[in-house]
Write a protein that binds this DNA or RNA. Sequence first.
RNA 1: GGCCCGGUGGCAGAGUGGUCAUGCAGAGGACUGCAAAUCCUUGUACGUCGGUUCGAUUCCGGCCCGGGCCUCCA
Length: 471
Amino acid sequence: MPELHLTNTLTRTKERFVPIDPANVRMYVCGPTVYQRIHIGNARPIIIFDILFRLLRQIYGEAAVSYVRNITDIDDKIIDQAKANGEPIEALTARTSEAFLADCVALGCLSPSHQPRATAHIEGMVQLIGLLVAKGHAYEAEGHVLFSVPSMPDYGQLSNRSRDEMVAGARVEVAPYKRDPADFILWKPSKDGQPGWDSPWGRGRPGWHIECSAMAEALLGPLPFDIHGGGLDLIFPHHENEIAQSRGAHDASAMARYWVHNGFVDMRGEKMSKSLGNVLRVDDALAIVPGEAIRFFILGAHYRQPLDCTPEGLREAEETLTRFYKVLELTGLGGPDDDEEGQPAAEFLAALSDDLNTPRAIAELHGLATRVFTAHIQERDPAGARGIALTFKASAKLLGLLNDDPAHWLRGRAGVDGPRIEALIEERRAARAGRDFARADAIRKQLADEGVELEDRKDGTTGWVQKRSAV
RNA sequence: GGCCCGGUGGCAGAGUGGUCAUGCAGAGGACUGCAAAUCCUUGUACGUCGGUUCGAUUCCGGCCCGGGCCUCCA
């Protein structure tokens, strides 16, 4: 196995990844706050860290990797959304959580080792806050408990900003109960009608950030753990504050060793975000292309780069996957009876291990696909082609791709009327037999416009393939 | 204002101090009734101005343009 390298936000450099304990590699990734369905931008870290999870399992063994991705089901946005919907909070979070998990499955993601819910970890948060108060890193004020940023002189290392810079750039009014403008809320009082839990500071609820500190240590154990991931926009304040809380409570020098952040998905050059309203929801995208195409599209750019989301891009991803499924069908792989497992190609692993360079890994996939076609069709060497295809399949699987049955992907997707296509093929066959090529070509053209490719074989039969979804 | 990214051929998108990304689209060829699929071939690409260097798209600096964080956000 090649050495894994990751870009560490903490040091702003690409570093060799060395786990604290190779027998227990630990990763925490910030999951969604469940008040709405997720969009393509939210899907990016879900997919990227699923790839990293798979790669770590490949390197260290499946049993040696713990991956925690939380669901935050208590937050003011949730309270507001439930109110706007006129439904109980529990109904909203249950429905949205379920939809989130369904989206993850549709995108081909493995289940993380643990998917904790914040509301199941309130006790841990209260304990953590208690420790922070006891150690002088937090104080109570007007029913709130706040983290004292000046109590931690080296606060701001992850986002590379000093407390003074933060305060100078602040664009929000400072709450009067804060001792320092940079202080942030750990616990806040709940009014009647708002969800709340009893605590030493009265009935209240956690502030944003503390849930991740609590869930990470509850499920991953002593600090530091190996990898903490999430979107670029979480660096500040969320991850910076998680670090402050976790380090402060445990006098630890670090919360996690490697901080990995993905770039944004853009819409016409601007960040896709709910506040801008320029979002493409995953469930809406799924109505246009299969989930695997969304996944492949996202892997088409390096995870740290911005990625512009366009319908054309999703289409191209889908058509490329069609080419890949042809490789499997040609070599008899990927079907229900296929239990042959190959090993990922060395070059492919090298690309993936180099800071998850998925575009380079995909380029390797294209190279392997071409070699399969050449061996099978040009060189008439099915056995050789199959051998390469096994490597191809194993490589693609590491990216979480090609999970469908080729026959289903190529001819069984929604919106395709197989019998009608077969009938048109038969009509075309008859036309060709009668040398009515104009009619034969018209049929081919018509189907091509619908995204259906015809392939005339040597033996006189004609096959067909659904290149893209019929929408 | 502070901090941080990025500007690569028609498009998408890697990468590198001096021979190759890759894909889509385009052109030519093999194959074909013609095609399609598949394969082969093909394109004076690296924002701009300087500097370092034998040599820079790649390193350094200025500038222009775009984006992000500093407030909820993946």
